[in-house]
Design a protein around this nucleic acid. Structure first.
Ligand code: FES
Ligand code: FES
Lengths: 145, 145
DNA sequence: ATAATAAAAGACAAAAATATCTTTTATTTC
DNA sequence: GAAATAAAAGATATTTTTGTCTTTTATTAT
């Protein structure tokens, strides 16, 4: 469904959101440890997210990554699109170039509604939503790979 | 969502189903042409599907691939599982090792219902269903990549 | 039987995704 | 200002996916 880069990125963002709510920044090393992801690879993804304005970063001692209030309301859609692109959200389920009701592929009718529910979920779920659940003990961010 | 190998495989199977209903076999070359897939790669996938009992194959002149009546009722689930495995259908949306209600990841609650609808779709849609739509002009198998 | 055909098998190649390592740059603390 | 810290940037390595090519085997038609 999502690439590894994307799952690592989402995991990291949820953790950063949590820390940001406590007024803290967090470094790549700790992020990788807590989310069980390879550190240099995760750092690369964070770099990319920073360039794309999805997170803030500060170099130097006491530096690290954080999200400002606005960024905490970023929907998953934006994150997935930034890392994996939007093929999943807009593309054809059988991999054809275009997806349309006029010239539908054999999976179109069945795939369309699933894609719609994926879109709805990604658009309506924010980083803050997910981090609140973790904070409230409803879900867990440190699990085995 | 699906790997290229999987989309190529599904495309090929729909075409083979169509031809099988006309009592015909079809070769890898024509399959690749009609479905707009790379021939040797598609041939490999068909080989794999043949070994797994999802299609029949006959070597030699007038040989090719076909599906018997039973095989035409194969659900997409079986095809996807055979090519891509069942990570999409049973695995965690954030890539963790296990998915459970007891130790849910942050995406679990939202992802679970989407995964359920994917499963329902894959289990309830057979190759014959898809090929019937193409045969009836409701959908198209020859589209641009 | 022989030749032609088409899949099977296996080796090989290219590209993309995943992962690591080193150097540079910015920032903070002292 | 100097030293320490941590992200940015860029080079490199590995693995997986995607794609191709060659040889072998089975089958059919003549
Ligand atoms: S054309 Fe394939 S999903 Fe719409
Ligand atoms: S634990 Fe991640 S989707 Fe269920």
């Amino acid at each position: 469904m999502f690439s590894k880069a994307c799952t690592y990125g989402i995991r990291a963002l949820i953790l950063i959101t949590q820390r940001s709510n406590e007024g803290e920044k967090i470094g790549a090393k700790e992020i990788a440890e807590v989310t069980a992801t390879p550190e240099p690879f995760t750092a690369k993804i964070l770099q990319q997210l920073s360039r794309q304005g999805i997170i803030q970063s500060v170099k130097g001692p006491r530096g690290g990554f954080y999200l400002d209030d606005e960024q905490q309301n970023t929907p998953l859609y934006t994150v997935v699109a930034a890392i994996d692109g939007d093929q999943l959200m807009t593309g054809c389920g059988l991999g054809f170039l275009e997806c349309s009701d006029e010239k539908p592929c054999p999976m179109h009718a069945k795939f369309k509604s699933i894609r719609a529910s994926i879109n709805k979920m990604l658009q309506s779920t924010t980083l803050k939503d997910l981090s609140n659940d973790v904070e409230g003990g409803l879900s867990f961010l440190s699990l085995k790979n």
